[in-house]
Amino acid sequence: MKQLSVSEKRVAQEFEPKIIAFLCNWCSYVGADLAGTSRIQYPPNIRVIRVMCSGSVDPLYILKPILEGADGVLIAGCHSGDCHYLNGNYKARRRVAMVKTMLEQFGIPGDRIWFSFISASEGRVFADTVRRMVTRLKELGPNSMKAQWEI
């Protein structure tokens, strides 16, 4: 990774990325809830939107926050075999790969978009995912779309 100058480092330290998270109703949202009720600490950078299935997240809903200037988008669904709608989670993973590939063509790092399998019992995995994501987004710095008005 490129060396940051002193002033860039200061910005990077002060910068708190904003993450929009789409969590599926049956697994990942419950996992996030569990993290809360079990008092597992995780960074407060995340804004959660509950969806019925990770497979229902259209690219539109990933792209809108990125163009609005959100620093990252997390999509999380159930593990293998647990999807309430059979395989929406796997299809979501493919869709996310597609959105990332497109965004990379336009200079938006793929690492702004994360996809995870998080079950209802994985409060700790949820907290850890958010933590790792925040660390990575701090390395990437703020999303320049924040200042872009011609979208």
Binding site: D58, P59, L60, L63, K64, L67, E68, G69, R95, M98, V99, M102, F106, K146, A147, Q148, W149, E150, I151
Partner: peptide, 24 residues
């Protein structure tokens, strides 16, 4: 939030979304 936006809004959002909807 941004100080100003282009109107009509969402032009780039439209094209990027369409790229994902028809891309494959």
């Amino acid at each position: 939030r941004k100080g100003l936006i282009k109107m009509p809004a969402d032009t780039i959002l439209f094209h990027l979304t369409r790229l994902c909807h028809v891309g494959y």
